[in-house]
Design a protein around this nucleic acid. Structure first.
Length: 197
DNA sequence: TAAAGGATTTTCT
DNA sequence: GAAAATCCTTTAC
């Protein structure tokens, strides 16, 4: 089995845009009930602070956004549209609410479990979206918790960096409040990037 | 291929 | 009470 270093907190304690870029190629892993699933991150999105209209912290410090104000390297997991979960890595420093949403992964380990959780779907439909990959990896509540990405069963590990020529930045999708804020990073060659709108 | 509507619950106004 | 960092199905062109 390939050994990968779990990313240190210092990795996340930097500008959100940089972390979003460098998370491309990293491996996110989640073990539930002894079953380990993982995938290579191919799409991320940065949410930077209270002045970012699309960031949940734009609403200020509330019970929901408390995790965003905590230390970097924690996972901000939230429930959306009454159905789906989304996973973020908290960035910068405590008191500076910001995070990177993991938008798509290429499945690596635990294919059978991912297919089962995704209702028998396969191929890119397995994880080409933030709600899909969370479901495939088995990531669920409690609401907006702050599990450490170093010590919990949900981890992000280093991998080979994705070369610049294979990376593109595009405007955000699906967020009417900040469509002109180009903080969405994707691996151009990956078929798993989410659908453009 | 694109657009529209539904599912379903939390969150903040 | 309205909107939401989504996804899936159905309907229209």
């Amino acid at each position: 089995m390939t050994r990968r270093a779990v990313l240190p907190r210092s990795f996340f304690a930097r500008d959100t845009e940089i972390v979003a870029r460098e998370l491309l190629g990293a491996v996110i892993e989640c073990t539930v009930g002894g079953v380990r699933c993982s995938g290579r991150i191919v799409e991320t999105e940065a949410y930077v602070g209270e002045h970012d209209a699309a960031c949940h912290a734009a609403a200020g410090r509330t019970a929901r956004t408390e995790v965003l104000y905590g230390p970097p390297g924690n996972a901000y997991v939230y429930f959306i549209y009454g159905m789906y979960w989304c996973v973020n890595a908290v960035t910068r420093a405590a008191g500076l609410p910001s995070a990177v949403l993991i938008r798509a992964i290429e499945p690596m380990d635990g294919l059978a479990a991912m297919r089962r959780r995704r209702g028998g779907r396969d191929g890119v439909a397995l994880s080409n979206g933030p709600g899909k990959l969370s479901q495939a990896l088995g990531i669920t509540g409690p609401r907006h918790h702050g599990l450490s990405l170093r010590t919990s069963s949900l981890r992000i590990q280093s991998s080979l960096p994705v070369p610049d020529r294979d990376v593109v930045v595009t405007p955000r999708v699906g967020i009417a409040k900040a469509v002109d804020w180009p903080l969405r990073w994707i691996v151009r060659s990956s078929p798993y990037v989410s659908k453009l709108r």
